[in-house]
Design a protein around this nucleic acid. Structure first.
Lengths: 225, 225
DNA sequence: CGAATAGTGTCTGTGAGACAATATTTA
DNA sequence: TAAATATTGTCTCACAGACACTATTCG
């Protein structure tokens, strides 16, 4: 009992695009925001060095998220992510193989969870090499989205394992924002969304820092009365 | 010279989804935010009353925007819009005809530009009837996006033809936000993004109001020094 | 004049930015 | 003790919310 339209045709009787997913996996590398890239098949077969975001075509019965997770597992060796949709790139001619649109996704993962190989690397987002397709645009979308995330919550992407010191948290925010942040202002803006653990942590010289963990509700603007 | 992969297959040799676009056209109706709906084909053929957003399948050589514009022209009788992408809805099973994903779009249009018929109507967004597919979700996305737009700029969707009075602008913002706004606070928050024309406008009783138009750059936060 | 609408004065609270001072460690 | 780091005090500025007051027009 396949569906047929008023002309007696099924959906498969009409031309359809190939739908791909590509995911910008952001991470930190030496206190800078970086993105995971993989070598293209062409490059693996002996062409010149060419990098791209991990991606794949969507298979039947699969959601876009499923497809993104599959490509991350198989091509980037990362598991357990939660890719979020960014935008559909659909310019005709963006892919010389034919009619292909790409649903861009992004996620963030701490560097410890990545396994780099000669076909999987991590590059700072402000020093990207030439990328295949419109993958540079996707990364720009991802960076914008991540910066917006970090303006709303202490560590939405779980780049830090709690508990953490204010200094470490600030380091993460500085990497994400790409600029230095004032310690005192940063502390005060974060405190309403953090829970002090009462424990201290010392790292070399100087007064030990208190350890915090994200507050339960991670409320937006702190306590109101 | 069709592309062939390492197995000698073209893109068309693999299963592909049908890709649709659906657009939430928001407008104002009696000072309330409303959305344009069309009667489903089933309903037209004599089924029970059932409404949906205007949409269509994407054709080859066409961008998603093109497809959205085509569906708006042909099914909703509106031209000259600039639909923006919201989200891809891809739950398997969301469409009982087969593997269909929908790229949701939205745009806004002043009510004067709409021509309503017995198959095209406008309904307040907080009094929606049952809708086909996940179109209610799309409308929710669209309303959120529009509210975000109006928090950043006086009239991003050009619902008002300049010049306009502060009162009219506030009326639009109240409709979009779905709540009353304080006249004095609203005025002061808008002034940095408006240019006074020097002209006055009187509407019945009371002191005439000055007419404004959106400031050129529509700057975000007003003047800094 | 009185009602209605437009616009301004001004007070309060909140929060960011910035600089300075204090507190607690290790070398 | 000196240097390094953490934390708090405090001042300033900007801005939203709120209420009261002034301004201008029509009936």
């Amino acid at each position: 009992m396949t569906y047929r339209d008023s002309a007696g045709r099924t959906l498969e009787d009409y031309p359809r695009p190939s739908v791909a997913v590509d995911t910008a996996v952001l991470t930190l590398e030496e206190s800078r925001l970086a993105v995971l890239l993989t070598l293209t098949n062409d490059a693996v077969r002996g062409g010149h060095e060419e990098w791209r975001l991990p991606g794949t075509f969507v298979h039947p019965g699969e959601t876009l998220t499923d497809a993104a997770l599959r490509s991350l597992r198989e091509k980037a060796g990362v598991e357990g992510l939660e890719p979020r949709q960014l935008h559909v790139f659909d310019e005709p001619g963006r892919d010389d193989r034919g009619w292909v649109m790409s649903v861009a996704h992004y996620d963030v993962v701490p560097p410890e969870r990545l396994t780099l190989t000669d076909r999987i690397t991590v590059v700072a987002v402000d020093e990207l090499p030439a990328l295949k397709y419109d993958h540079a645009k996707i990364i720009a979308f991802a960076v914008d989205a991540l910066r917006a995330d970090y303006r709303r919550s202490p560590d939405p992407a779980h780049l830090l394992a709690p508990p953490f010191t204010m200094r470490r948290l600030r380091g993460v925010h500085e990497a994400v924002a790409g600029e230095r942040l004032l310690p005192d202002t940063f502390r005060r803006s974060m405190l309403p969304n953090l829970e002090p653990t009462g424990e201290l942590f010392s790292e070399g010289r100087g007064r030990p820092a208190e350890l915090y963990r994200p507050a339960v509700a991670a409320s937006r603007g702190g306590t109101r009365r």
